[in-house]
Design a protein around this nucleic acid. Structure first.
Length: 489
RNA sequence: CGGGGCGUAGCGUAGUCCGGUAGCGCGCCUGCUUUGGGAGCAGGAGGUCGCCGGUUCGAAUCCGGCCGCCCCGACCA
């Protein structure tokens, strides 16, 4: 698909803007199978950058990658009561293989707790074997009723960490640690501010004792759960007989955690940073940081600027080949397309920096740099241009985070908010509402019924209001928790 | 599964009410002129009008059935 001239604007129709942007920027396309999507090279390039950063962080915290199979015996899913209940409606089940009916149907993994803890039980004997710190990069299938590109598709790519520990405390520390890793990644790589906190019982993962999440605010003021980390307690270890001998000689069940982030984050990236002209990829996740657009009139000028463009590219790029301190650059040397058309083309695709090189620049040994986020042309010397670019990318990364954070805070509501006022907010602009809650699931259900908003999390201390809400927003009873309400994806 | 849209060239669409040789814009190909914010001219390629059946001399258009996609709701990362 080539660039169309116009996207729908965010103000007009946020949902149409998102779909159109994902398609036109060539991140992804619909597949012939309903609910499935194809991740195209520009989209996959972002995923690869995400994987690289996260994988290093997992390794740095002691985890190792492994791979468990796609097919899981159907009976495994049924071993943990709340797990079955949670996943049964969305399972894809294989009943035939090799031309004949299978004795036991195979489930296509919706997540891998069951198969992994089954295998762990085979490998675990002594407390000396613990902890088990595993991660796997995989695809999973969940048969969703309604799907959206990146945000919710039948099959998606993710990473799932699975660990086993000797004590509950250790498992809790691991759960919190990985939530922190996600937060760091989302803030520092994605330039997407998140609020960390604990899920209420109704939003907890099927099979977990406790679920924590990272919640981000999209530009339509709805919340996106961008990552989760679960303390599974002994639920799965009991279901799968995951036991070990203790130092004292007794037999105990291990304590598990699991945690995951998916290609859904790409959707979050689009809805956090995209504007009416297209994507904005934060520099640290850009598959290409700089696109060079040569400008010329005559054939001689063309030869001159092409030569300069390629010389500059050679001097600054090489990251993709592993050269330290370099970036990835692309020269748009298509002829017959005007520079302006190229600018729009690369803006749509969210490339962080555009470098223009024309005859005047060559003569002055300079180039013009334009940031995707703030625009504005900067003439800079070609001497030391790589350093200039690095500095610009760093500034841009920080500015994008700051802008997203400012937007989130501008659309957050704290203080004494009445339920009537809350309804107005949810029916109108939306946003994050910090409010007291008496802890009653019935209240949560009632609010969801009446406003579509749900409790996104019980925020961690640093995100809580200076003064804790004293009363429940709905019932007026003493508040047990401060919670964040929002409409969610 | 309920409600609402929509299926005509790669994309966007007109034509459907009122049956009569399938049109336009963008994109694509060739050539020339252009190129510091979406180029111009000339020529050209590209169509089982979602599918099946019916009515008719004749169907994109009328009738019956089916399929698919998108949006809104019930499920979820």
């Amino acid at each position: 698909m080539s660039d169309d001239k116009k996207l729908p604007t965010r103000a007009e129709d946020f949902s149409a803007w998102y779909n159109d942007l994902v398609l036109k920027s060539e991140l992804a396309d619909y597949s012939p199978v309903r609910g499935c999507m194809v991740t195209r090279p520009d989209g996959y390039g972002i995923w690869e950058r995400m994987q690289l950063a996260l994988d290093q962080m997992f390794k740095a915290t002691g985890h190792r990658n492994a791979y468990f199979p796609l097919f899981i015996p159907e009976s495994f899913l049924k071993k943990e009561a709340s797990h079955v209940e949670g996943f049964a409606p969305e399972l894809a089940v294989v009943t035939h293989g090799g031309g004949s009916k299978l004795e036991e149907p195979l489930v296509v993994r919706p997540t891998s707790e069951t198969i992994i803890y089954h295998m762990f039980s085979k490998w675990l004997q002594s407390y000396r074997d613990l902890p088990f710190l595993y991660n796997q990069w995989a695809n999973v299938v969940r048969w969703e009723m309604r799907t959206r590109l990146f945000l919710r598709t039948t099959e998606f790519l993710w990473q799932e960490g699975h660990t086993a520990h000797a004590t509950h405390e250790e498992a809790e520390i691991e759960t919190r640690q990985m939530l922190g890793v996600y937060r760091t990644f989302m803030e520092q790589w994605m330039a997407m501010p998140v609020i960390t906190g604990q899920k209420t019982d109704s939003e907890r993962f099927a099979g977990a004792v406790r679920t924590y999440s990272c919640e981000a605010m999209m530009q339509d003021n709805r919340a996106l759960q961008a990552g989760t980390s679960h303390n599974l307690g002994q639920n799965f270890s009991k279901a799968f007989d995951l036991t070990f001998q203790t130092e004292a000689g007794g037999i105990e069940h291990a304590w598990n955690t699991s945690w995951g982030v998916s290609t859904r984050m790409i959707g979050g990236l689009v809805m956090t940073h995209g504007d009416d002209n297209g994507l904005q990829i934060p520099p640290r996740l850009a598959h290409t940081e700089v696109v060079i657009v040569p400008i010329w009139k005559t054939d001689e000028e063309r030869e001159m600027v092409f030569a300069m463009a390629h010389t500059v590219k050679a001097a600054i790029s090489g990251r993709e080949r592993g050269l330290a301190g370099r970036i990835t650059a692309h020269v748009d040397d298509r002829i017959g397309i005007k520079p302006g058309a190229k600018y729009y083309h690369w803006e749509l695709r969210g490339i962080p920096i555009r470098m223009e090189i024309g005859p005047r620049d060559v003569a002055a040994n300079q180039c013009v740099l334009v940031r995707r986020d703030v625009k504005g042309k900067n003439a800079v010397s070609l001497d030391g241009v790589l350093e200039t670019i690095h500095a610009m990318l760093d500034t841009m990364q920080n500015d994008m985070f700051a802008a997203a954070l400012a937007r989130r805070e501008a659309n957050s509501f704290r203080g004494d908010i009445s339920y009537d006022r809350f309804k107005e907010i949810m029916a109108g602009p939306g946003g994050f509402v910090y409010a007291g809650w008496n802890g009653d699931p019935a209240v949560e259900a009632k609010v969801k019924e009446e406003t579509k908003a749900t409790i996104r999390c019980i925020p961690d201390p640093e995100f809580r209001s200076a003064e804790a809400p004293a009363r429940c927003m709905v019932t007026g009873e003493p508040a047990k928790y401060e919670v964040i309400w929002a409409k969610a994806y």
